[in-house]
Design a protein around this nucleic acid. Structure first.
Lengths: 219, 219
DNA sequence: CATAGGATAATTGTATCCAAAATTTGCTCT
DNA sequence: AGAGCAAATTTTGGATACAATTATCCTATG
């Protein structure tokens, strides 16, 4: 529970959050231009905070900005997606290994609770944010803030396509199974099994994202 | 040879580059405030591009910005530096392994040439940019743009302290030896040796950076 | 008819100006 | 004299206005 916010919201930061959600929701298709004036008018602000928010989203890998030319939702190439998933396996594998011995009764119950909530969620954005929350709880005990930030950063540019792919019912079962197996492996302290399940989980997600990314938004 | 720049420079982007260099050169000590007005006056521009440049440098991890309070050079905690070096070993180890089989006569000659230039450089910024160039040439054949970008990102917040530590003559010899050994291991295609030398190289650098970071700029 | 050239419009980047927040200064009261 | 509070100054965040660059459309020409 947060008492005093460390970084009191500024127009640009809340705008960035709103735009993040709008992008994940698929408001702009990859390649489509985000017009500063239009966004400014829509949110009732000037173009200055809009520009700062767009720059922020660029640094997160969601947008590509060309000078004097505009910002557009990035569509990673298949090769780049492969690379991102390889990096995720490196970073998340390390986080998982370090978190293994540090989980306790409470953190495991929290994991199970998050997974329950995740399976109850019925909208795409809820799944994505729930999945992020689950993995953050999974890696949290490692106490590696920088690696955790990197985990978020590596997900950001592809979650948009994962959300697209997680339409009605698609692969939700296998997804949930892998999460349950991860919890079990962590509870048992089985590093090998955990690593193996994580790898399988990421491979499956990679395939889904690749399909969604190549299939959508042909501009 | 570049004919037409893909991204024509804008005031904010050249300012960001200038400020990057100024920070690496130690113009501001960690914790010291960077005043927008002062920087704007100094470079003869308004505060708008200054703010955008500062935001960019924040996203690179060089600065920490608090709302209405100002930007200051970040001083990572020892624990954070440890984590950054662990991540570097993960990412650079992967890059090195992937690049190993892809080096050829020309790329090896280029590596040797860069190392020669590096040993001739006589100022701190030259060493740092030379070291970056060397490692980029070392990992380049892996053809992993995203990992290479991550390599730069993981270095950025600590290079400032590496530059500080690389004062007159300090550890330059061991540093050069490790680079030469890396070239030899790559030429021989010896993955184990290359990995081992890289690990040793990063451990040594970590110690230097930790010492420089904790010892300097007590604000 | 396709295309090169140039004027016009649309859009981004930057400067100037105003508002909000924080830091500093100086005063009061104990 | 020192702690606490309030006005003044400083500094940052945002809005408006202007300049620079790019995109569009129209015309003229081979």
């Amino acid at each position: 529970m947060i008492i005093a916010p460390l970084a009191p919201a500024t127009t640009a930061s809340v705008l960035a959050q709103r735009l993040r959600e709008a992008i994940d929701a698929g408001r702009w298709s990859p390649g489509e231009l985000l017009r500063q004036e239009q966004i400014a008018a829509e949110y009732g602000v000037s173009r200055i905070p809009v520009r700062e928010a767009l720059a922020q989203l660029q640094s997160e890998g969601l947008l590509e900005i060309a000078h004097y030319r505009g910002a557009r939702v990035s569509r990673p190439q298949a090769q780049e997606i492969d690379e991102l998933f390889d990096l995720r396996l490196l970073v998340e594998g390390d986080l998982l290994a370090r978190a293994l011995g540090r989980h306790d009764q409470r953190s495991l119950r929290e994991l199970a609770r998050l997974q329950d909530r995740l399976e109850d969620a019925d909208d795409r954005l809820g799944w994505i944010s729930g999945d992020i929350a689950f993995h953050e709880a999974l890696y949290g005990p490692a106490e590696r803030p920088r690696s955790l930030a990197l985990f978020r950063q590596l997900r950001a540019p592809i979650d948009r396509f994962a959300a697209q792919a997680l339409g009605p019912g698609a692969r939700k079962q296998g997804w949930a199974n892998e999460h349950r197996q991860l919890i079990a492996a962590v509870a048992a302290g089985d590093a090998m099994a955990a690593r193996s399940i994580l790898e399988q989980h990421l491979q499956a997600t990679r395939a889904v994202v690749l399909a969604a990314c190549s299939g959508e938004g042909e501009n």
